[in-house]
Write a protein that binds this DNA or RNA. Structure first.
Lengths: 250, 250
DNA sequence: TTACTATTGTCTCATTTTGTAACAATAATA
DNA sequence: TATTATTGTTACAAAATGAGACAATAGTAA
């Protein structure tokens, strides 16, 4: 059952959007040692695809990215980063989109604007996937989380786009972690333990980290504020809770 | 005097290109401790701008970038890197382009495609500016090198684009230096001394580096091949010459 | 109450990397 | 032959990181 909000988009009007430009999103969802990705599934086509959208004619590129991200996840104020723009001719294949539209009962003319070539600006986001309410777009049936290690068959070059996003996220992690607290990003809860943070790192980087080195490094970044202890009920010493220092305190 | 090649482009046809997408180029030129940038000047307008271009309908984005770069510099096989895509509404101002066209004797209709909004994909390149033969495009009078530390007034957000390109180049320098020898990039001559290489680094990073540390670091990267000494005629010990190790030897 | 266990915060020491300066080698010149 | 500027390398200090040990402690089991 498509989300009611998505109905209006069926009448997506070519004239409302910048021509030739699309946005593709690699939305990483983290929770308890799991890293997932938000994908759309199209009816009767067995095609999975990254969430995507277009730029309104009087809308900033980055604002369009935030708008679309909110439309798909129901979340606002999300950590969002542009990582690459894709423009190979091999990306252009009208067939999948045509199949998708026909599955929705639409018969596009051969020169329908959605079948034309697009340059695609790639963005990635990182959120807690339990916080989001995935909402399909007008042409898709489902919008769900899939494990990064076990992705279904994807449209066109979408797997390569995911790979590039993951590499960028991994390379940027230290530097961009500071930005997390600029946004009310629901990635970690407001307070968290050092083990929580380490688990986030280990899941994204897909490698074990040394506990003492990790703690030393994180504390040296001067971005964490130590709070009270957390009595978790576990049969062991209680860890401290931490919070990202607010921007105006830095 | 416009270059003869540029005449054909006056009849730049909207139908040949992808709509809505432009490419902007920050072409860094290095030579003997100087870092310059290639800029176009438009007739009777006192407007300077980055070289730019459009993507043909049956051309890869990156191929378009190479083509345009060659058109402006007459150089092929250049180290070229996409760094960001710009899409703010504030970038869209038809007035400068209208002034430029009118200075060329063209009176565009108000909805002329060149006056519309574009999303701009930014690329940077790094070459030896003595190797290039700058060629103006169809709308500009001159195409010349300007010192990075003393740039003229630029159109729109072009100064911010340069700043972003420079930050990216500086951050990528170590990692991307390896790519130099994939291309027959005329940045350093085929063989060079360690001092030459250090001078390149110091000019781009705009900071002095320690000689012994630099040498140690460069040699540890295992990308340089030591050749014979260079007897320069200077009253001092002759330095070794180096060359980037060819890809297939790595 | 008292062991016992799992986890935590911190410390120590070894290793590696980097910063800094010194040194001898040497190619031209005076 | 002495002098000078520059080079390649080494030596040592300082800093960063890797790897493990240790005591502290919150619960559980006896």
């Amino acid at each position: 059952m498509p989300h009611p909000l998505s109905q209006e988009a069926v009448i997506l009007n070519e004239d409302d959007f910048l021509p030739g430009v699309a946005l593709d999103f690699v939305i990483f969802g983290f929770h308890q040692n799991q890293l997932k990705i938000l994908l759309l599934e199209y009816s009767n086509t067995a095609l999975f695809a990254l969430p995507a959208g277009f730029v309104r004619k009087s809308e900033n590129l980055n604002d369009a990215a935030r708008r679309i991200l909110t439309e798909r996840t129901s979340l606002t104020n999300i950590y969002l980063e542009q990582f690459h723009t894709f423009g190979d001719l091999s990306r252009h294949d009208a067939a999948p989109m045509q199949a998708i539209m026909e599955a929705k009962g639409i018969t596009p003319t051969p020169d329908h604007w959605l079948l034309r070539r697009f340059i695609s600006v790639g963005y990635y986001a990182l959120i807690d996937f339990t916080q989001a309410i995935p909402i399909p777009d007008s042409l898709s049936d489902t919008c769900n989380w899939y494990e990064l290690t076990n992705l279904p068959e994807l449209m066109l070059d979408h797997r390569a786009i995911i790979q590039k996003a993951l590499e960028t996220l991994r390379a940027d992690l230290d530097r961009k972690l500071v930005d997390f607290n600029r946004w009310a990003s629901p990635l970690l809860s407001d307070t968290f333990t050092m083990a929580d943070l380490q688990s986030l790192y280990e899941t994204i980087l897909d490698q074990k980290l040394r506990r003492s080195s990790f703690q030393r490094k994180m504390l040296s970044l001067d971005m964490l504020e130590r709070l009270d202890k957390k009595y978790s009920g576990g049969a062991h010493k209680a860890p401290y809770l931490y919070r990202f220092i607010e921007q105006n305190k830095l």
